[in-house]
């Protein structure tokens, strides 16, 4: 028991020497990153620095050119990997929500449960309702996306990811498309998730959230990780001049 605690837990997600080019453009230029259980890694960086591409390579929505993506101990770049099974372990939340407009909130949340995990409708809906309750939308299960506010839509998006019982959830600017007054409800859900022990990687500009909830902040530029460390270190006392310049611009931009 005690000896087990001394060994650092194995990472849930590990990226090793990840490279990705779009034509001549080196979008990911050798990324190494390990995310341990219950950790919240917060990723910042200028536009075009490769943050979205990084997240999308983790479940191979974008195909990396080289490197390893190790999820829960298995390299998912190996040929023969059942990607659809792997993707159930990696939840993904999108900037533009990407809810299915022809399905209710519950339909959105249960589709993969029924069609990939093969659950019966009842079982799927029970889990779907639990996920919707977790994001505070138990009463909206029959609403279609166009009848929900942006904040509610994004929480359905989070519930859709959670319902599959993922080991890790990736957030790509989850609040950037929201009106300011709706941002809080989504961040509150993410804070609760963190408190409940979920492992998360979050790309965002919400510095206050990062200070309060992040275990580690990663600053990216030009497809590389320039610097990483605790929120206090990165925001308060960064080593690199580039980090300092970016962080000061970011905090000014957000008043």
């Amino acid at each position: 028991m005690t000896s087990a605690e001394a060994v650092p837990p194995a990472p849930i997600l590990e990226l090793v020497a990840l490279h990705k080019n779009f034509g001549p453009l080196k979008v990911l230029d050798g990324i190494d990153l390990a995310v341990r259980p219950r950790e919240l890694v917060f990723v910042i960086g200028p536009s075009g620095s490769g943050k979205s591409t990084l997240l999308r390579c983790c479940n191979r929505l974008e195909e990396p050119d080289s490197g390893a993506v190790i999820v829960d101990g298995a390299d998912i770049m190996r040929p023969g990997t059942d990607l659809n099974a792997v993707r159930q372990k990696i939840g993904m939340v999108f900037q533009s929500f990407n809810l299915y407009p022809h399905m209710t909130a519950l339909g959105n949340v249960t589709l993969a449960l029924r069609k990939v995990q093969g659950l019966a409708r009842d079982a799927a809906e029970a889990r779907g309702r639990a996920a919707l309750a977790q994001v505070g939308l138990a009463d909206k299960e029959n609403s279609y996306p166009n009848a929900l506010s942006g904040g509610q839509q994004q929480r359905v998006g989070i519930a859709r990811a959670l319902a599959l019982g993922p080991k890790i959830v990736l957030f790509d600017e989850p609040t950037s498309a929201l009106d300011p007054e709706l941002v809080g409800s989504v961040l509150a859900v993410m804070r609760e998730l963190k408190a409940a022990g979920m492992t998360m990687v979050v790309v965002s500009h919400e510095l206050a959230f990062a200070r309060a909830a992040a275990d580690r902040v990663v600053f990216m530029e030009g497809g590389r990780i320039v610097e990483q460390g605790s929120p206090e270190a990165i925001f308060g006392n960064p080593r690199e001049a580039r980090t300092r310049a970016f962080v000061s611009r970011l905090s000014q931009g957000h008043g």
Partner: peptide
Amino acid sequence: RGQWEAARSTGLGFGATLGYV
């Protein structure tokens, strides 16, 4: 495109994404 990506990210295959989403 986001509809495809959202569905694929939840583990739906190409055919299932096409058919259901």
